[in-house]
Design a protein around this nucleic acid. Structure first.
Lengths: 157, 157
DNA sequence: GTAGACCTTGACGCCGACGTCCGGGCAAGC
DNA sequence: GCTTGCCCGGACGTCGGCGTCAAGGTCTAC
């Protein structure tokens, strides 16, 4: 299959695929006309990458998994390097969670204090009021995957 | 005081101060020679900004607090807009924590499965072994503040 | 007068993971 | 032949929060 189809099936873009190729992940064969050619294996590699990215892995960190798959393993995390990466990532996540929880608590306290102060004392200035449509959570983790569109039947469109 | 001194006292750099000025936070008076001139109030503004940044606030999100202080309030979070920002941030943090915890759990499960598989079956390839010096936690929150250097007595140096 | 420490503005660099645009080639249907 | 749709590579843009360098002005001490 060509790059456009692979991109659609993987729920990504051609630009992304070319980018991955430039980074050395996901090499493509070429047809006579120079077009990139992919197979089902490549789709699996791509899905592995996407899954890990959803877990907050950086592109580089998905490399062990991709190479593991390419080495013939049925699962990207069947190799020691992949498992090691899992462990590192888990540790990072724990450190991250600890920090965020600490900050959350401190922020909560600050808010409580500020609210207490603003209840009694003077300084009445109309509050912003009304839901201002939350802007962006920001977790550097990308929301709950936007659903991978499989090629077949797409009633919408 | 001039920009260099303020930067030192606030534990930041002159570049940062000029950047804040360009963003409309922290305006400076100018001396006859064109040099920026700051006072203790500015130091307070800066500290407010730093504190919030440590909490993961983006620069723009510190604006309500800074303006609150400039309006004469004794505390940057004494204004409704600041409190509103606290609330938004707290909500964001909660959403972020929920996502991270979910990811953590999924990652933990994946790791456990991968480890189980790699215990029995073949595929013995020397594991990386040895601590590889943790690279970078990444929380977008900046570690536990590097201690603000106050101008007076500095035995080191 | 001259070295050194400080200040000024302006502009480019960085990082990650792509988005977007450009000019041009290729393939298929009408 | 012409349009439409896909493909190619190259290059610049994005975002936040500054770092870093360049070329020059200012003030102080010796």
């Amino acid at each position: 299959m060509r790059i456009g189809e692979l991109a659609r099936r993987a729920g990504t873009t051609t630009r992304t695929l070319r980018y991955y190729e430039s980074r050395g992940l996901l090499a493509a064969r070429r047809g006579e006309n120079g077009y990139r050619s992919y197979d089902e294996e490549d789709l699996r590699l791509l899905r592995q990458i996407k899954t890990l990215q959803d877990f907050g892995f950086e592109l580089e960190e998905t490399r062990p998994f991709v190479e593991c798959l390419r080495s013939g393993q049925p699962e990207g995390d069947a190799c020691p390097a992949s498992i090691e990466t899992y462990r590192r990532k888990l540790a990072e996540l724990d450190a991250c969670l600890a920090r965020l929880q600490d900050v959350r608590e401190r922020l909560r306290v600050q808010l409580a204090r500020a609210e207490r102060r603003s209840h009694g004392p003077a300084g009445a200035a109309g509050a912003p009021r009304g839901g201002a449509a939350a802007p962006e959570p920001r977790c550097e983790l990308a929301g709950p995957a936007p659903a991978v569109t499989e090629e077949g039947a797409r009633p919408w469109t």
